[in-house]
Nucleic acid binder design. Structure first.
Lengths: 341, 341
DNA sequence: CTGAAAGCGCTTACAG
DNA sequence: CTGAAAGCGCTTACAG
């Protein structure tokens, strides 16, 4: 394994020699296919010797022979976003139950992850993909991914998908604010080009229209998914001549910026500014007051992603699509509109 | 790769046949060892045909032949702790530069990760390990890990390590509080049995002793590394008959609980309670006021871990040990002691 | 400059 | 119940 020092490791041949049986016999014992084919005594003996010698089957050889690994790549745009960690956690547990290992591939900002994934894929070392809020690279042949990938929080023609009911979640958030009397509702939008965020934007606009409210361009501010960028964008909103009484944030991460901007101006949340987030992870609990937010069932999402993927491995039917509904969790960051407007 | 449908994939033999050359030639071209051994025209031709057929070398076969993978496992106790995500990010970038892939192994609460790691290791599918705040399982033969693993934020006999100057960091935090006049400094401790936290505890105690302050058992509260547990523990501290004027938290995650407990009592941070954390990730910026905390250079840590590991692969010398110093970042959560005591 | 062949360590019919 | 042997797809001396 390690360069430099070739401490050749123990193989089934070594064990066989020492146990005085054939290599096939050792192999059968370790593959769990020995019952009825190898006598119990022989099995015992083989296991004992193997243990003694510290033998462990080489999975690389096994994979080459069998033609499939047991590795699923979990592809996300950014490891430092806690949302993905939470989904991964669910995925990993479920995968482990089915004897699969999940590896994390973080694409980062560079679009170059295509290379990584293409390689991994076509290189036969990865069996399936969970694409979490990332799309396949544009120039990729989708046929190669078919029934080997499930896309989460996105959709893609030809791939199984697990989408979130972003529309429903956004509606719940907006209606909650409207119900509290807010009419000047701003949108702190994620400046990321994926469908999940475009849906929030569209629904935000539709909800305003449904209430007969005008959509004002200056009420939408865009920010990258980090607190610093969110703060800058939120500042712009709060410094408007007629500032919003509530902000709908595309992600809890962005809500951090809204809290900070409010604090800078000495505004009290929620009395002078109501804030709604999207996600409901650690951040929502960390903020004070705790954040009213659209909860995404992350662990369940990860679990389901693996289940769908494994099902896809078995049958080559149509891609499977599933929508997961979202609930608004009302906490301390929203209240009835006051005299701020 | 995928069960069910054996869409046999294209191999070097297929390419060779179509290109009218031998399989060896194709192999040499793709291994980048063709120059001077295969004519440029032939190379061109092979590449063209391969491209046309969608050929991609099978890395599993390559690994079996070569005897080493290019996979490093990054082992952490909990994916949902943002600290690890940050370290991983640094590790991943560096590994990629050296053509290694990092996979994430999260051990979870169960100690059963030993099985996972042992398997992975002895199974020849993983080349090296970064153990991040986890120790090798007790019953593991360390020889097998030697020069294949680097341990971060921990130490272990026989393994290269990257430790943090926890003592220095804790001293800086305590001295900062003492300098502000605090004498009743509580310790919100992580209830996790790893050296990094034991060091904080010891240093906390030593610093008190150095100032001639008595160590009061009730001033130390233990909590699991999540906000809910931290809140419970922090409550205990604040409800003491003589509550602390400052709390030193073993981790930023625990500081969340301290903020919450203070908020419950209507105490203002830092005026009525100073709080110091440990970590300095997203959480420190999310809390309001922003958290004074001991900063751990996560990205640099991840980067260095990979570098040390790769160096270990090359030479079989003594394990390498390195200590990374920590800086206190003073922010808004600490101030001079008031009349609260 | 090019090819035939051995071998990495397994799994699995096939024959006894 | 057990073994000899082919083959997964590469890499790399070795021979020409």
């Amino acid at each position: 394994m390690v360069r430099g020092k070739e401490s050749r490791s123990i193989t089934s041949v070594d064990v066989a020699r020492k146990a005085g049986v054939s290599q096939s016999t050792v192999s059968l014992v370790f593959a769990g296919k020995a019952s009825g084919r190898v006598s119990p005594q022989t099995q015992q003996e083989v296991l004992r010797i193997a243990e003694e010698m510290g033998y462990r089957p080489n999975t690389v050889a096994r994979t080459l022979r069998l033609g499939h690994t047991n590795i699923i790549a979990f592809v996300i745009p950014d490891v430092s976003n806690p949302f993905f960690a939470a989904v991964l956690k669910g995925a990993e547990q479920t995968a482990r139950l089915h004897d699969y290992t999940v590896i994390l591939v973080s694409t980062g900002e560079d679009q170059e992850w295509q290379r990584v994934v293409m390689d991994a894929l076509t290189t036969h070392s990865i069996e399936g993909f969970v694409l979490c809020a990332v799309r396949p690279p544009g120039d990729m042949d989708i046929a190669i991914l078919r029934s080997r990938a499930v896309i989460v929080d996105e959709t893609w023609t030809g791939l199984s998908s697990l989408s979130l009911d972003i529309v429903g979640g956004t509606q719940a958030a907006m209606r909650h604010l409207f119900g509290l009397g807010h009419r000047q509702v701003a949108h702190l939008a994620a400046d990321v080009d994926v469908e999940t965020f475009r849906q929030r934007q569209r629904t935000y606009e539709q909800e305003l229209a449904l209430r007969g409210l005008v959509l004002e361009a200056r009420y939408t501010a865009r920010a990258a998914l980090n607190p610093a960028s969110a703060l800058q964008a939120a500042r712009k909103l709060l410094h408007l001549s007629e500032p919003p009484t509530a902000i709908f944030c595309d992600d809890d991460l962005l809500a951090i910026g809204a809290y900070k901007a409010a604090a800078e101006l000495g505004w009290e949340v929620p009395r002078q500014l109501s804030i709604v987030g999207f996600g409901d992870g650690l951040i929502a609990q960390t903020l004070a007051p705790e954040l009213t937010t659209v909860a995404i069932p992350t662990a369940a999402l990860g679990k389901r992603a693996i289940e769908v993927l494994l099902a896809d491995f078995e049958v080559l039917e149509q891609p499977h699509s599933e929508v997961i509904s979202l609930e608004l969790r009302v906490r301390g960051s929203t209240t009835a509109v006051a005299g701020n407007a």
